[in-house]
Design a protein around this nucleic acid. Structure first.
Lengths: 256, 256
DNA sequence: CGGGAAGTTGAAGAGCGTCAAAAGTAGTGG
DNA sequence: CCACTACTTTTGACGCTCTTCAACTTCCCG
């Protein structure tokens, strides 16, 4: 009844620009080969030939902050790979209560639906770019290249592990412990992408963080203040957070 | 600090009987062909020849209530398929706080680790039986039979969807809503196995339920009492719960 | 600069947790 | 068959963490 969900700018459910930039696979090197996030994503498993097949079916999507990529129960026509920006995926209860089930960064995969429809909504947190693959065409590629499927299974397993960690967080951790876990997650995700993990950038709002951690914005804010008072973190300019005591933060996050 | 985790009878971490009942695949029909839960599990995707290969590498495990199958951080040597009974998988915080991430029933798969070690512990709730497959051997089978991998990916996707539902429950639902969701889940799981979904059998303790729903045993008990007072459920003999008003239960579970 | 959104802080309240005790249930042995 | 024990479940009283509601401050962006 209170949590921010559809931001005021919503309603504009759609694409900012859906530039089909790839058509004509006669190039000797496919554009996917040059992809900056290739090593992070499914595409890492692929040989040059397979990449060319992917290039043939990919199109590109850009989203402005708070723009919606798809909504729960939309027909699942495409799967996506984030190449730039930050996305959030979330589920809603009829009365508006919102649970963000994950934040996605470059290299992350999105839209792997089990059924014919998506089981969650996806929205841009910051200005974002994605590769879009028609589900049907990707599925035929998967049949031809089993190691792509293997890679996908590996990613699904990893996501499951992360989801179980998050259940532990939501079911059993205190507000302070949740925020500590969240900051470490952000820091590690940045490091994995080759960015600096220590002054960690927090691109999402307090409300988004609350909806991710099962808390209210006020409690998130208070927990930030507590961590600052405990000299475990400090804020350098708004959403740049310096982790002052990594060990203390980890102990907190693990509930020790 | 309070939640039951390692029951008193624990410490006996091990097998009740690990009968390697299959050796000598010279049988014309493999035992897996006769498996009662085959249609529910990975094996459903397989042809006769492939089943025989599975038969060759399977062994069987039986566990008494509260016996441990494996623990978090154990080396992940095997994956399992539940054939009888009820299992629980859970994660622990150092101080003993416990989050049950799932209950498993016949047909469910277990032990799909992304790393070399399990990310959670698994324990029998009731007397249970499982098929055990050495991870390395199963992986070579997967390479030979891509449709097994496809099936596994399908199961992983489904588990992910369930995990996201559970995050919504843990992050945003009230105690009563959580219990309603839980009872519906049990009822549907029973129906899927061809059992009666209405007087639903609840094989696990209040403490296990609490650890699954992110609540204490006391709150679970009080929520049961409330649902009974509201004439939404009634107890027929201990752990047989009659769902009196399915619609009201669903509305509650969905937060309407 | 100025106005609006996002974030912070405070006070009061609700829901769930904690602690304790009673009631119910199951298993054991005389 | 019943008494005895041990455990699980239920119920009650109280307390604490997080939520709610509200006011205030800070940060942006035009």
């Amino acid at each position: 009844m209170s949590n921010a969900r559809l931001s005021p700018s919503s309603g504009q459910v759609g694409r900012l620009s859906e530039a089909v930039s790839r058509r004509g696979a006669a190039l000797s090197t496919s554009p996917c080969e040059a992809c900056a996030v290739r090593h992070l994503t499914v595409c890492a498993a692929l040989a040059e030939e397979e990449l060319r097949h992917l290039s043939d079916i990919v199109s590109h999507v850009e989203l402005a902050p708070s723009q919606c990529l798809f909504q729960e129960s939309d027909e699942a026509r495409s799967v996506y790979s984030v190449t730039a920006g930050t996305m959030k995926v979330y589920k809603l209860l009829p009365d508006g209560r919102c649970q963000v089930t994950g934040f996605l960064f470059p290299g992350d995969f999105l839209g792997l639906a089990h059924d014919e429809t998506y089981a969650y909504s996806a929205e841009a947190v910051t200005h974002s770019a994605l590769c879009s693959y028609p589900k049907s065409k990707l599925e035929s590629l998967l049949k031809r290249f089993p190691q792509m499927e293997e890679r996908l299974l590996g990613m699904a397993k990893h996501e499951l592990m992360v989801a179980q960690e998050q259940m532990l967080l939501l079911g059993r951790k205190t507000a302070k412990e949740r925020l500590a876990s969240f900051l470490l997650m952000l820091s590690r995700a940045a490091a994995r992408r080759g960015q600096n993990g220590n002054p960690v950038l927090v691109p999402m709002s307090r409300s988004d963080i609350g909806d991710y951690l099962g808390l209210t914005t006020e409690t998130v804010s208070r927990s930030f203040t507590q961590l600052k008072r405990d000299r475990i973190i400090s804020a350098e300019s708004g959403n740049r957070i310096r982790l002052l005591d990594d060990e203390a933060l980890q102990d907190l996050a693990e509930g020790a």
